[in-house]
Write a protein that binds this DNA or RNA. Structure first.
Lengths: 226, 226
DNA sequence: GTGGTGAGTTGACCTTGGTCAAAAGCTCAT
DNA sequence: ATGAGCTTTTGACCAAGGTCAACTCACCAC
């Protein structure tokens, strides 16, 4: 892992992300001030549970998963962050150590925003505070939704849900490409890879056709009914 | 459900809660301005998924559970809020409808803070923004922790965890009273009541003695090992 | 007391999904 | 094309926990 300054492309990705969408330019610039970039290979661990965190992390490109561990080295994903996502903010704002591990799933470019600086900005710039408040609310809702899903839905239902979440507007049939290995999807949904595979084959009878990473949905209705 | 103004006792509970702990008095007063109180019987539903939410809710006394529903009326608890907890803030800040149902578990006194007013305050008062940011971070971490627990731990392990969480400092043995029915604990832990019961009887062999709502722990070590 | 009600427990059974092992596809470098 | 090293699938098995029903227990009213 090597550290460097932001390229103009990095800046563009950052400024285009949700966090910065409603932030006036000067405030956005202030947030980026002092940010650094690091590159990571797939499987690289960004931090471990218990590590002191002094940055807020931003996925410029690649994919990062956040996971906890149990006995016997078992791992459970807490979240999977695609390009444009922010993480580590909770530990920074609460001035705590990391409560989970973070690992690059793909080769990734990560921007690190200076934690203490960001805390200061939150207190000084109402726009920054508001943007982060919204971001935290969205994160919270996602997590709550996943918790409820885990407790309410079976494996095929969770998969159906995920597929529907990827689907645009209201077309009755569509096709899309998984943005990562099935492996990763399984983790994200809280399933063993084998269970994901079986869930897909259960969904075949509802018009879901899987070829490698390509998912084809023939009958949206049937999926929703599942 | 009837609505009224805050009594001085209500004010005291609010001001003593975590949210207000580090808030200067004028800011705290501003937040409370225009707040109302409502009383609810056990089982009363405060709001349903999909309802428009114009207040942030605060538990002055009693107990409220937040839950989602699946097919066939199955319910899964997302969170259980004791006295002093705040909820509904995510929907308010994102200007969305409720993403879950909320129901009083015990007879409860609920303070309702004016949503739009609070949004305005967040933008005007840095202290308020910061306090809410911290609150959201704590909520988020709790939820993430529960998600990881659900995926990593068996029923007896989750129960052991809960018990240890109730235990003060580092005493090797202690006793405490459940603050609610086992029913509710089961929901909170994502278990059927029967499963909770069985988990308790599994834990007996690790020195956990349950008599009604009274839980006695003889050997903290054994519990942690579980 | 007696009966009633609601919480909690226990047992029997069954579904879901985890685990392990083997087979089947892919991708890529040679 | 060939083989190495993967991801993914499939099959067989098992364990955890949900469900339903019966039973116990505590508490309360009468």
């Amino acid at each position: 892992m090597k550290t460097s300054r932001l390229t103009s492309n990095d800046r563009a990705v950052l400024l285009g992300s949700r966090l910065f969408a409603n932030l006036p330019a000067p405030a956005a610039e202030a947030v980026l001030e002092g940010a650094t970039i690091s590159r990571h290979e797939a499987q690289d661990v960004l931090f471990h549970q218990g590590d002191a965190i002094e940055h807020v992390f931003f996925v410029v490109s690649g994919l990062v998963r956040l996971y906890g561990t149990g006995k016997g080295g078992r791992e459970a994903d807490i979240a999977v962050f695609p390009r444009g996502a922010l993480f580590g903010e909770k530990a920074v704002f609460l001035d705590q150590r990391a409560t989970a591990h973070a690992q690059a799933v793909h080769p990734s470019i990560i921007a690190k925003l200076d934690g203490p600086r960001l805390c200061r900005l939150v207190r000084e710039e109402a726009d920054v505070a508001w943007a982060l408040l919204e971001l935290l609310c969205r994160h919270g809702q996602m997590t709550e939704k996943r918790l409820a899903e885990d407790r309410l839905l079976t494996a095929p239902q969770r998969v159906a849900n995920y597929i529907l979440g990827q689907c645009p507007g209201d077309s009755p049939a569509f096709t899309f490409r998984l943005p990562f290995q099935k492996n990763v999807l399984a983790g994200k949904l809280g399933l063993a890879p084998e269970a994901l595979s079986r869930a897909f084959s259960t969904l075949r009878q509802s018009g879901v056709i899987v070829k490698g990473r390509l998912i084809e949905i023939r009958d949206r209705e049937a999926l929703e009914r599942f």
